Amino acid sequence: MYVLFEGIDTCGKSTQIRLIAAEHPEAIITREPGGTRFGEKAREILLEAKLQSKRAELLLFLADRAEHYEEIVRPNRDKLLISDRGFLSGIGYALANGGVSLEELIALNHFALQGDWPDHIIFFETDEATLRRRLGEKSADGIEERGIDYLLTVQEKMKEALPKLAIPTLILDARESVETIHQKIVTYLGI
């Protein structure tokens, strides 16, 4: 079962993934960007280099996604495979940056993933106050430096894309307790 944990920065994805990994040591845990050697280099560029071209940023995400699919997803499709972010985030960031349509992004991601969509998406939705508080507790990377309004726009763009994807999705309120969220995920996935 291939599951994407999606949402903007500081929404709680990584915390929930750590809880599942502790309960299911057999699970394959990965992330985008960064789940492969190429992905680590791409992540460094994306978070630190502050690319001027948003098209270059999109293409780097797509290149990482294609490599990640080939190296991590396809060989582990029969296992519990959880990715900290994936193509939905890519779509949200690209739409927030402008210059490309949702239909084009779906087609590009379909190409990068060889048409192999995840089985489920776990989507963490947060609000401005929670985002502001959590971002204040850490140092900002290059994408977080774009600001709270930008991140909330990315979140809205991800939510707008979900119905067009027709992938079973659990939408969670990231303001709820860690334990409540965890129980909802475990129940939803049946793990």
Rank of each mutant, 00 (worst) to 15 (best):
L152Q: 12
P118F: 04
A49K: 08
L165A: 07
I28Q: 02
I143G: 10
P33F: 07
V3N: 05
C11Q: 01
A140E: 14
E137S: 13
Y2R: 12
L46Q: 01
E32R: 11
R37M: 14
A21E: 15
A66K: 13
G12W: 03
S101C: 07
Q114K: 13
G92D: 06
F5D: 00
R85D: 11
I191M: 14
D119C: 05
E128V: 13
I45A: 13
A112H: 02
I20Y: 01
K159R: 15
I185D: 02
D141R: 02
E23K: 11
E71P: 11
Y188H: 12
W117S: 06
I28N: 01
R65V: 05
L108V: 13
A129Q: 11
L165H: 05
G39T: 06
N97Y: 08
E160R: 10
A22D: 15
L102H: 03
R37Y: 13
A63F: 09
P75V: 12
E145Y: 09
L46G: 02
I148C: 15
L95V: 03
R65P: 04
R43W: 04
L105I: 06
V73G: 04
A107C: 07
F124R: 00
F61I: 00
E128I: 08
K138C: 03
L51Y: 02
L19F: 10
E128R: 15
L131N: 05
G115D: 10
G190E: 09
E137M: 14
L88D: 00
I121N: 00
L60G: 08
Y69E: 14
E48H: 08
L59Y: 11
L162I: 15
K157G: 02
G12K: 04
A112P: 01
E160G: 11
A140S: 13
E125Q: 11
I20L: 11
T30C: 08
A22N: 14
R43I: 10
P168W: 04
R77A: 15
E57F: 08
I29E: 08
K50N: 14
Y150M: 02
G35H: 10
E176Y: 04
G39C: 06
A174I: 00
G92Q: 05
G147Q: 11
K13G: 01
N109E: 02
